[in-house]
Design a protein around this nucleic acid. Structure first.
Lengths: 136, 136
DNA sequence: GTACATGCAAAAAGTTTGCCGACTC
DNA sequence: GAGTCGGCAAACTTTTTGCATGTAC
């Protein structure tokens, strides 16, 4: 369970990183796999998953992970959210304003017809706050 | 692909509905299965999925479907969002205010230490807006 | 040379589906 | 009695993992 001490920059890892960053989109692991295989045909899907997870853990790429579909990866690590088309599944970036009327704002900005949004908060519940305090 | 014309209220369907509504929590399909099997031991997981999907489609329960975990179901159908503990996975309800400072507000209201939130918009992209118009 | 990384294949986890007999209306 | 529904098991999709070999440092 110990994380590795040193990272090695292998051909595969570099190609996987490039496939996510240079695409400028939000590929699934499977899509990354296809792209990488055009240059390195022997790369396995397991390797793709391992490296995407590792790169996301290092903060080099972002795990998008929208609900109800396979995970996607994003070369842009700055804070931003996403619009997803409920019909074709297409995903685009959205930078939220601080203020109100978010749906209208997003709709005007992206030319999507925004029909819904989901907000999900994460954090520590009261029990876990205590538990974390004890262990620190 | 045609949906059934008439719904029948079977013992199993009723028990599955009860397991979600009476629990007052956010069970996964597997958890619903366990609860139902205490009274009806021969119920299969497939039946549970079929009925949860059907009930959610009819708007009787809600599919929660947080990112990165198995789908969950919610007996409360009014508009509300969720806080999830990133440590133990516990999920609670949150009703959002219209205004700003959402994270602080959620934190004060739920006693969670809110460390992150995700916002995901859904709708129709420009292409699909046109396509939908054509078909209507 | 040593640890980390890859390839391959098997397995795990979550969900869907096909078939046929059973039950609801 | 017609048509929906449930039980069971198989299949499917996405992701993880074990193991022997390969490779960056």
């Amino acid at each position: 369970m110990e994380p590795p001490k040193h990272r090695r920059m292998t051909t595969q890892r570099l190609a996987i990183l490039a496939a996510v960053v240079e695409g400028g989109d939000h590929p699934t692991a499977e899509e990354v796999h296809e792209r990488v295989r055009q240059r390195l045909p022997r790369v396995g899907l397991g390797t793709v998953y391992r490296n995407l997870t590792l790169l996301a853990g290092a903060g080099i790429i972002r795990l998008v992970n929208l609900a109800g579909e396979p995970a996607r990866f994003d070369g842009k690590t700055e804070a931003h959210h996403h619009v997803r088309c409920s019909r074709c599944g297409r995903i685009e970036d959205v930078v939220l304003p601080a203020g109100n009327e978010m749906r209208e704002w997003v709709s005007a900005r992206t030319h999507y017809e925004v029909t819904g949004h989901r907000v999900e908060f994460t954090g520590l519940c009261p029990n876990c706050k205590q538990a974390a305090r004890r262990r620190t």
